[in-house]
Amino acid sequence: MKNVPLADVDHVDRAVLPIGTDYPPGHVLDWHEHRRAQFLYGATGVMIVDTAEGTWTVPPERAVLIPAATRHRVHMLGVSTRSLYIEPDAVPWWPVTCTVVDVSALLRELLLVAVGFEIDYGLSGREGAIAALLLHEIAERAPLPFHVGIPASADLARLCRAYLAAPDAGVTNAAWAARTAMSERAFTRRFRSEAGDSPAVWRARARLLAAVPLLRTASVSEVGGRLGYASPAAFTAAFTRTFGLPPSRFAASRQGVGRNRNS
Rank of each mutant, 00 (worst) to 15 (best):
Val223Gln: 00
Ala174Ile: 10
Thr44Met: 03
Tyr23Val: 08
Val100Glu: 00
His32Asn: 10
Asp8Leu: 15
Val74Met: 06
Ala251Leu: 05
Ile19Lys: 03
Pro88Val: 13
Arg108Tyr: 10
Ile138Pro: 01
Arg190Gln: 14
Pro88Tyr: 14
Tyr85Val: 04
Phe146His: 11
Leu111Val: 13
Val220Ala: 11
Leu156Ser: 06
His147Gly: 03
Thr240Pro: 01
Arg179Ser: 14
Val96Gln: 14
Ala152Phe: 14
Arg192Leu: 11
Gly122Lys: 06
Arg207Val: 01
Asp102Leu: 09
Val96Phe: 08
Pro92Phe: 15
Ala15Trp: 10
Val113Glu: 10
Gly116Tyr: 02
Met182Gly: 02
Asn173Tyr: 01
Arg71Leu: 15
Val148Lys: 00
His11Tyr: 12
Ala181Asn: 14
Thr99Met: 11
Gly170His: 07
Asp30Ala: 06
Gly149Glu: 10
Val28Gln: 10
Ala174Phe: 12
Cys160Ile: 05
Gly78Pro: 02
Pro60Arg: 11
Val79His: 05
His27Lys: 06
Ala233Leu: 04
Ala195Asp: 02
Gly258Trp: 11
Arg203Ser: 01
Asn3Ser: 15
Asn3Met: 11
Leu144Pro: 00
Pro25Ser: 10
Phe187Cys: 08
Ala186Lys: 13
Trp56Val: 08
Leu65Gly: 03
Gly228Lys: 07
Leu227Asp: 03
Phe250Glu: 11
His32Ile: 07
Ala178Ser: 14
Pro213Val: 11
Ala211Ser: 08
Ala165Val: 05
Leu77Pro: 00
Pro88Met: 15
Ile130Arg: 05
Arg62Ile: 04
Arg249Val: 11
Gly54Met: 03
Leu135Phe: 15
Leu159Gln: 09
Gly26Ser: 07
Asn260Tyr: 13
Ala90Trp: 05
Ile119Gln: 12
Asp102His: 11
Ile119Leu: 15
Gly228Pro: 00
Ala204Phe: 00
Phe235Ile: 05
Gly256Phe: 07
Thr21Pro: 03
Ala204Leu: 14
Ser104Gln: 15
His34Gly: 06
Arg203Leu: 07
Leu227Gln: 03
Ile86Thr: 04
Glu53Gly: 11
Asp168Trp: 10
Thr99Gly: 01
Leu123Asp: 07
Ala181Phe: 09
Ala105Cys: 14
Leu214Asp: 01
Pro145Arg: 07
Ala177His: 12
Pro60Met: 08
Thr217Leu: 10
Leu112Glu: 12
Ala114Arg: 01
Ala139Asp: 09
Asn262Pro: 11
Arg73Ala: 09
Gly122Pro: 01
Phe239Ala: 02
Ile119Asp: 10
Arg71Val: 15
Arg226Gln: 15
Leu110Cys: 08
Leu77Gly: 00
Leu159Trp: 01
Pro213Ala: 09
